[in-house]
Nucleic acid binder design. Structure first.
Length: 263
DNA sequence: ATAGGTGTTTCTTT
DNA sequence: AAAAGAAACACCTA
């Protein structure tokens, strides 16, 4: 599930659950989610420390400790949960951080496509160098700079994390639909006015989604109609049947009337 | 029982 | 050279 709004929600979960509290014990129940570090060193390096700054960039969450930094990526199914240390763990709880005051932060992940990295600050900085500007923080000028000079399709550009960090499949479709731009428009063909509208819409969609800690499946948004049965739900704006297809390697929904096809 | 999913990487093809 | 496409990763649901 996690796109920028979900990860921002996890940042708040981590802050409320763990910030400032001593990490008493790290229990790795499935080492399959650890990358570049084993269970032993993860525990040894974190136990006795506390989480300090909690930084989100795109879909990455970085938890600083004053020593090593824990880098979380949630893949498709990862999440953070705050529980009581005595609560029975969930089947998909892969790593448990027991904190002072009997709280327990849990990395829960069904599919284990990503997980946790442990890095020194220089390495954490290098990770962020490979990411484009955060979609929630990017200025209009940097947004323009990211999109100009691209030759591919618009949806591929919006979901390319090295160009702009944080947008996933749902957000890209929602933003394009609200902007009335077809996912297959070539990025370079946008007028200045269209880019301005795209930027404004992206900010509005992100603001609403961050408040909900997800892309909300609202009836008056495209997202509310993705899982409609075969014939395709009507566009909430004009009633035309929504189309589904493939773009940037992912299932993509759009309204053939509101989002005119290029060519 | 096969397909597909709010993600990314890597390899191959255009 | 850049971009699109397909497969792989792991697991569950329809």
């Amino acid at each position: 599930m996690p796109e920028l709004p979900d990860v921002e929600g996890f940042r708040k979960v981590l802050a409320g659950c763990a910030r400032g509290r001593t990490i008493e014990q790290v229990d790795v129940r499935d080492a399959g989610v650890l990358h570049g570090v084993g269970a032993g060193r993860l525990s040894r390096d974190l136990e006795g420390r506390r989480f300090t700054e909690l930084e989100r960039h795109g879909k990455w969450l970085l938890a600083h400790t004053g020593g090593p930094t824990v880098q979380f990526h949630f893949g498709m199914t990862g999440r953070l949960v705050c529980a009581h240390a005595d609560d029975a763990p969930h089947a998909h709880d892969r790593v448990l951080f027991t904190l002072a005051g009997s709280r327990q932060l849990r990395y829960r992940d069904q599919r284990k496509l990503k997980g946790l990295w442990l890095a020194g600050d220089p390495e954490a900085a290098r990770l962020l160098d490979e990411q484009g500007p955060d979609a929630l923080a990017v200025s209009r000028a940097d947004f323009d700079a990211a999109l100009t000079g691209r030759r591919g399709r618009l949806k591929a550009a919006l979901t390319d994390q090295s160009l702009l960090a944080g947008l996933g499949n749902l957000l890209a479709d929602e933003i394009l639909w609200q902007s009335r731009l077809h996912p297959s428009r070539s990025t370079g063909s946008l007028t200045d006015g269209e880019r301005a509208e795209l930027y404004r819409t992206m900010r509005r969609v992100l603001r609403t989604s961050v408040r909900a800690a997800q892309v909300p499946p609202r009836d008056d948004w495209l997202t509310g109609h993705r899982d409609a049965p075969d014939p395709g739900a009507p566009c909430p704006r004009c009633g035309t049947r929504l189309r589904a297809g493939r773009a940037a390697g992912r299932t993509t929904y759009w309204c053939p009337h509101c989002q005119p096809a290029p060519d």
